[in-house]
């Protein structure tokens, strides 16, 4: 008869879609008799109750406050709910907002904590969470002996978003007192893409840090052009200013939404890069490191040097 709690999120009044994935994760360890409650802070939380009324959700806790993300408030809410309800599990999406509040809330609570969790299960009644380590090259199973409550942040794009309909009861909760140290001042939208269309491209050739030097980039632009592909890149290439940000694939860049063929050269396959391309049906990885995690999501792998492969490939187009 455990209580499971999910902290949902919103941005400017729009539900953070990964909240439904966190619900799915919590639901996967929900046993008969357990209750699953979802808490949401928003200016108009009632407007989002419908979206959260998915199968398995027993209660939506609506906290009326500003739509602005305020880590101090989120932490105060988690503390108040944890003290009142002693949940066995608190789950939330491993989004950028959670990066601010989850570790701080966990130490204030003194609970168990694991971030970027990609699988969870109950083993003899104990919660076991799996996350990656050493740049995605290993997995680690974690448990939380002696912890009454465990807070987990759930990797996005792993759990199928919770769907189906539920009829949760709605509880209104007054925002707890919190010393708010941050003030939202506005947004800065991404720079104009300048005609580069990663989301619309069916065929992308992406280069990562393996390209080594700015002077090596040009040949891949030419190769992509010759093959009829759009050139994409990993973040360090855009951060260095070697290619415009609009070409960056990944969590803080573009989603390769229409892509059917993705060739990644010299890209290691970090979780943030995968976010933008993992779903592509045919991924080809070219990497000198046979253990690079990109190979674990690729359909075809070439363990080899991207320059040699690129040079040879050029002859075919």
């Amino acid at each position: 008869m455990a209580e499971l709690l999910v902290i949902a999120g919103q941005r400017a009044g729009e539900l953070h879609p990964a909240s439904l994935e966190a619900i799915a994760a919590a639901r996967s360890v929900k046993l008969a008799g357990d209750t699953l409650a979802v808490a949401l802070i928003a200016a108009d939380p009632q407007a989002l109750v419908g979206a959260l009324s998915v199968e398995g959700v027993d209660e939506v806790i609506a906290i009326k406050a500003s739509d602005d993300f305020q880590p101090d408030l989120t932490e105060a809410v988690i503390l108040a709910l944890a003290e009142a309800r002693k949940p066995a599990l608190i789950a939330t999406a491993h989004g950028v907002d959670a990066w601010s509040f989850a570790p701080a809330a966990a130490v204030k609570l003194g609970c168990g904590l694991a971030t970027d969790v990609q699988a969870l299960r109950l083993e003899d009644g104990a919660l076991v969470a799996t996350r990656a380590g050493y740049a995605e090259k290993v997995l680690v199973d974690l448990d939380f002996p002696g912890k009454e409550t465990v807070l987990l942040t759930i990797r996005t794009n792993v759990f199928e978003p919770a769907a189906g309909s539920g009829s949760p009861k709605v509880t209104e909760m007054a925002a707890p007192a919190a010393d708010i140290a941050t003030t939202h001042e506005g947004w800065k939208p991404p720079a104009d893409a300048g005609g580069i269309d990663i989301p619309g491209s069916e065929f992308i050739l992406s280069i990562g840090r393996g390209v080594g030097d700015e002077s090596n980039v040009e040949q891949f632009l030419e190769l992509a052009g010759g093959m009829g592909a759009t050139l994409g890149c990993s973040r360090p290439i855009a951060d260095n200013g070697w290619l415009p940000k609009a070409r960056q694939v990944g969590q803080s860049g573009q989603l390769a939404a229409s892509c059917k063929l993705y060739i990644a050269m010299g890209v290691s396959g970090s979780v943030q890069h995968q976010w933008g391309m993992k779903h592509v049906e045919t991924i080809v990885a070219v990497n000198t490191d046979p253990e690079a995690s990109i190979f674990s999501i690729a359909r075809y792998g070439i363990v080899g040097d991207m320059f040699e492969i690129a040079e040879e490939l050029q002859n075919h187009f």
């Binding site: 380590g133 199973d141 448990d143 674990s296």
Partner: peptide
């Protein structure tokens, strides 16, 4: 620690067909 490492292991490698 706030979590205990039960075990660490290499993930099952996906289906990449090596060329």
């Amino acid at each position: 620690p706030v979590a205990r490492v039960r075990k660490m292991y290499a993930p099952e490698r996906g289906k990449a067909e090596l060329i």
